[in-house]
Computed example of a mutant assay.
Amino acid sequence: MPSLLTVFFMIFFLLESLVAMIGNGFIIVVLGREWTRCWTLPPGDMILASLGISRFFLQWTAIINDFYSYFFSISQGVLFGMVWNLPNVTTFWFTTLLAVFYCVKLSSFNHSIFFWLKWRISRFVPWLLLWSLVLSILITVLSFVKGYHILQSPVTGNYSEKTILNANIRAFQMHFFLPLQLFILLIPFFVFLVSIILLISSLCQHLGNMEHHSANPQDPRMQVHIITLKSLFFFLLLFTSYLLPLIITIIAPVSVCSSWFWIWEVVTYAGISIHPAFLILNTSKLRRALKKMLHDPQSA
């Protein structure tokens, strides 16, 4: 029987997941309706919609993986965990792509590469989303094939066979899944950091130009920079709050039966449950849709 602390954090995790799925589901529905009307979306909305979809399925697979491992089979839960890897990887890359898109669109560097990217990033977005998805699928298939090969041998009630299976699972996680996960998580995180640093540098350069020319401090371009940076710093906070617990649980895995496992799950997915609300309140299109739904529930 689970302890009261474990039950508490299980319930908390379920409520947190419900909030995340409602928020991301709202984003998907609003942008999906616009897409069905126009059969197209602006590049930024494409990324937001893709991010909402990946997070929605990430939360579902996290619930299935955690509770299946707890109540049924840890070894089969490993396979569910590899399916979870697909929305996990796409979430990281879509988040990074959104930061890169903002960085290219708003940066005011005079380098020819930035001019070239600024004019072409919008047409690149669908292809970047597609390649992010393809890369995520390839990584997931690779993990699944490798994991299935380890787990396919039948296990009877024999103690030695179960011990060997558990040892194989640990070896798979430490020598294959761990390095792969670290590569998957850290590469987009560093790209995300570089995008924020470039955007800060662009803002500082713009402020320097304003002081030199005695420009209006309420310059709209500067205001857009500041608003976007606030959004990206919030992204960074949530990115870090998701990344660090995930890396800790990969490096030092905790049993799914432990209360600490469920505490880490609550911490890890806290950002994903909060962030959709931030996006809805700070994106004019989503904010208008929410106000319309609240004032006229029949339109929802």
Rank of each mutant, 00 (worst) to 15 (best):
L4I: 11
F9A: 01
F9P: 00
I11E: 03
L14W: 10
S17G: 08
L18W: 07
M21N: 12
G23T: 10
V29Y: 09
V30K: 09
E34K: 15
W35Q: 05
R37I: 04
G44Q: 12
M46I: 00
I47R: 02
L48N: 09
A49N: 09
R55I: 01
F56M: 02
F56R: 01
L58A: 06
A62K: 03
I63R: 02
I64N: 05
F67W: 08
S69K: 02
S69A: 15
Y70V: 06
F71R: 11
S73V: 10
I74Y: 14
S75C: 00
V78N: 12
V78S: 10
L79S: 09
V83L: 15
V83C: 08
N85T: 14
L86P: 00
L86H: 04
P87W: 00
N88V: 02
T90S: 14
L97N: 04
L97E: 05
V100H: 06
V104Q: 05
S107D: 12
S108L: 13
I113G: 00
I113L: 15
I113D: 04
W116N: 08
W116K: 12
L117C: 11
W119V: 05
I121E: 07
V125L: 06
V125S: 05
P126I: 08
L129Q: 13
L130Q: 06
L130M: 09
V134E: 04
S136L: 01
L138N: 02
I139C: 12
I139Q: 14
T140I: 01
S143W: 08
F144M: 15
V145Q: 03
V145K: 05
K146S: 13
G147H: 01
Y148W: 14
P154H: 08
V155R: 05
T156L: 08
N158S: 07
N158K: 07
Y159H: 12
Y159R: 14
S160T: 11
S160D: 08
E161N: 03
I169Q: 04
I169S: 01
A171Y: 08
Q173V: 03
H175Y: 13
H175E: 12
F183A: 15
F183Q: 09
F183R: 08
I187C: 06
F192A: 07
L193M: 13
V194C: 03
S195G: 05
L199G: 04
L199N: 03
S201V: 02
L203E: 10
Q205M: 12
L207I: 14
H213L: 13
A215D: 13
D219A: 07
Q223T: 13
Q223F: 03
I226M: 12
I226C: 07
I227D: 12
T228I: 08
T228N: 13
T228Y: 02
T228H: 05
L229G: 05
L229P: 01
K230T: 14
F233Q: 03
F234K: 13
F235P: 00
L236I: 01
L236Q: 07
L237P: 02
L246E: 10
T249L: 12
P253K: 09
V254K: 10
C257D: 14
W260R: 05
W260V: 06
W262C: 03
E265L: 07
I272Y: 07
F278G: 05
I280M: 10
I280C: 09
N282A: 01
N282H: 15
T283L: 04
T283N: 15
S284F: 10
S284K: 15
A289W: 02
A289P: 02
A289K: 01
L290K: 03
L290D: 02
H295M: 14
H295V: 13
